[in-house]
């Protein structure tokens, strides 16, 4: 067994980049898994985080338990529990075969999206909770002074401010999500690692296939990091531009120059 870079570049990597159809291409599956679960996960995280900071035990306790279970058990166990446990139970329900949902339920891909979404929702909710609690109270008081009601304060002040506070952490979480998509290969989804494993079994070439997959992830992580940094800078645009004529901030004036 040895590593042959030429074989890897000419035989393995093209198979990972060009599939039979666009949607069955390994790299496309990896990317859509990441994007879909990122969007769904973040949408799910919002109500969980709001429930988590609520003073009502009927709200914060379930949210706390959800976050604890999602963060406290391995993602691989969650994948197995959902795919082999929940999927079988739901597909075994009477009349399930006739519904329009059945083709989706049979497809491991959608279960991978589901598992990744609810998992990342747990992590993101915890990040959001910290950010919501870090919003300076003075800003909320200012909202009250303007006569805003609770909803207005939340949507106009707390949430936008919290999202800005946790952007760097969210960037890291999205990278982790991209890396976590490899676990979909364990439930028969042919994303990058899944297909690399398939080639490995066909050709008995261990190193070429695994290193090809590793290389693609390094490139994907690099590109995604760049995109997210760009997004981060864009969302914080107003705060990155130094005020006109400002040189090095004078420590003596700190706090007197408006919002930092």
């Amino acid at each position: 067994m040895q590593f042959d870079p030429i074989y890897m570049l000419t035989e393995v990597i093209p198979q990972l980049l060009w599939g039979k159809t666009f949607w069955s291409t390994p790299i496309v599956i990896t990317l859509t898994l990441t994007i879909l679960s990122c969007v769904i996960g973040n949408l799910l995280a919002l109500p969980v985080a709001v429930a988590r900071v609520s003073p009502n035990p009927l709200l914060w306790m379930p949210a706390y338990l959800y976050i604890l279970v999602m963060r406290g058990t391995p993602l691989l166990v969650q994948f197995f529990l959902i795919y082999y446990g929940v999927r079988a139970a739901i597909m075994g329900l009477p009349g399930m075969r006739e519904t329009w949902l059945f083709p989706y339920l049979r497809d491991a891909y959608w279960w991978a999206v589901f598992a990744l979404s609810i998992n990342t929702a747990g992590y993101t909710a915890e990040i959001l909770r910290g950010a919501i609690q870090a919003v300076p109270y003075g800003e909320i008081e200012a909202g009250k002074a303007f006569g805003m009601n609770k909803m207005q304060i939340f949507w106009r002040i707390t949430l936008p401010r919290a999202i800005r506070i946790c952007l760097p952490t969210m960037t890291g979480e999205t990278i982790l999500l991209l890396k976590a998509t490899v676990l979909a290969s364990t439930i028969t989804v042919y994303e990058i690692l899944g297909w690399a494993n398939y080639i490995k079994q066909q050709t008995f070439r261990v190193y070429d296939t695994l290193i090809a997959a590793a290389l693609l992830y390094v490139i994907l992580v690099f590109i995604l990091t760049r995109i997210l940094y760009w997004l981060e800078r864009r969302l914080n645009r107003d705060r990155l531009q130094p005020p006109p004529g400002a040189g090095r901030p004078d420590p003596a004036l700190a706090g007197a120059t408006g919002p930092a």
Binding site: T73, L81, Y84, G85
Partner: peptide, 29 residues
């Protein structure tokens, strides 16, 4: 997880045994 896989595979009780596995990991955490 290997123990969970073995138990689930032998009894075909996947949901139950993977939940038990998750429970043990949660205990550890």
């Amino acid at each position: 997880l290997t123990a969970g896989k073995t138990a689930a595979g032998a009894t075909k009780m996947f949901f139950f045994f993977y939940s038990v596995t998750a429970g043990f990991f949660l205990l550890l955490t």
